[in-house]
Design a protein around this nucleic acid. Structure first.
Lengths: 242, 242
DNA sequence: CCTCGTGCGGCACTCGGTGCCGGAATTTTC
DNA sequence: GAAAATTCCGGCACCGAGTGCCGCACGAGG
């Protein structure tokens, strides 16, 4: 809440926190989550029990040590968006942030996935985290569609759809053990959502906000039922703007 | 799971369970959820502490005493569906079941809503319940769209959209204090989802027997430098083949 | 009358989580 | 460079949720 005000350049890196995470996962993986007590963790880490709860509000939090930061990044990313951006596209890019974070440490992500699949308590905790992401996306869409008819309904449903598509790709990748390129999978899934949500015609320069150089490629998504002249007109006007 | 095999006609009605629910809500409403201990509840109900956990696995469960039954109803409802039914429509009807259950006891639902809004622990518990509904809907859609391209992705996203629309209407109604007709609101919201998901099919008619739709969305990727007439020719020939 | 199954209450215990305090380390200030 | 203040850490004591176990009362059946 009121913890870190300025630390985008480099994290102070508290050593004790990392050692607690390491000790916790070592024990979780070798004897299971519920079979490991907090006392076991702090004994292995060589610190006091009280210090554990200084860095992690609960035992579950040690399993998801980076989500708080990622949620922060997403909030800032959405806050830094311009009014000219397409809201749905922006939200999809925000979801990509989460996937990127998982992809940074594949082995860690897969290990955690195994844990969350087996332990019911961790699953519900993960649900609460996912809910915060969805709420963040929904809040952004709500403000962008404030003047629109059924704006909040549209925002809620769209946020849920984006989260579902992201999780679909994420889980597929995690189930495969971290093989393949997860970013491509999530792009496919999100493009599917975007296609069903801007059905008349969506055209623009390809994804990845940070990636330069691909200005040349144009992606067009439409439906069979849309008349060809409408597609052409939409594409031409979109190209004209760029 | 393996508890009740046959009790659709009439519930055996354990008296102690109901008295525990009544005592719990009385205390929750007058001094708050976290300020009420299980000992307080069983003292007011005049039963032993051990009996509380016989009927409710956790303190949170007493707040949602009917969801287990409702989830059971939904599962049976979906299992009893015919292959001729439109999957999306069927799932929307299943979501209506949940709304109906809330609408049966408006005051109770509103009181519970107030609690879940304030207490974080109850919110996450509710999330886990909602997740089970979403999973049930998703499993049904997955089997119905097993042969379809991107069937599981489509199922996951559609289930999430239906749940989001349902929750949107539900929360609006709960926030209003239980005024108005909740079923109408949820119908509107679900129709919105159905419109964005089966746009070709008109509302009401069973339509679209699971054949069309998957290949409805067309994705075209090309370059800026490609002449428009080549793009059009390519798209038209590609559509002709399909 | 005895027995067996069941539902309930009453412990005693584990473990997650918190408040509080004292001490050590580190930084600030003169 | 020493004293003072702040921060960080460990060690309690404590609360409350949840569980295992045992004993007891009650009703059904031989």
């Amino acid at each position: 809440m009121a913890a870190a005000a300025t630390n985008p350049p480099s994290t102070p890196k508290p050593a004790m926190r990392d050692s607690l995470i390491a000790a916790a996962f070592q024990l979780f993986l070798e004897r299971g989550y519920e079979q490991t007590t907090v006392d076991d963790i702090v004994t292995l880490a060589g610190v006091g029990r009280r210090s554990f709860f200084r860095y992690f509000p609960s035992k579950e939090d040690v399993v998801f040590p980076d989500h708080e930061q990622c949620l922060d990044d997403m909030t800032r990313f959405l806050a830094a968006s311009a009014d000219s951006d397409d809201p749905v596209t922006r939200v999809c890019d925000a979801a990509r942030l989460v996937m990127r974070m998982y992809a940074e440490n594949p082995t860690f992500s897969v290990q955690r996935y195994r844990l969350t699949r087996e332990v019911a308590g961790l699953r519900t905790y993960e649900l609460s985290v996912v809910w915060r992401y969805e709420k963040t996306l929904g809040d952004y869409l709500r403000t962008r569609w404030a003047d629109r008819k059924d704006g909040t309904l549209r925002a809620n449903v769209a946020a849920a759809a984006v989260v579902a598509a992201h999780n679909h790709a994420l889980r597929r990748w995690l189930r495969s053990g971290g093989e393949g390129e997860p970013l491509e999978e999530v792009d496919r899934a999100l493009e599917f959502v975007r296609a069903t949500w801007s059905p008349d015609a969506a055209a623009g320069t390809g994804g990845d906000p940070a990636g330069e150089g691909a200005e040349d490629v144009v992606v067009v998504i439409t439906r069979r039922s849309t008349p060809m002249w409408r597609v052409v007109r939409e594409v031409e006007s979109s190209l004209g703007e760029g």
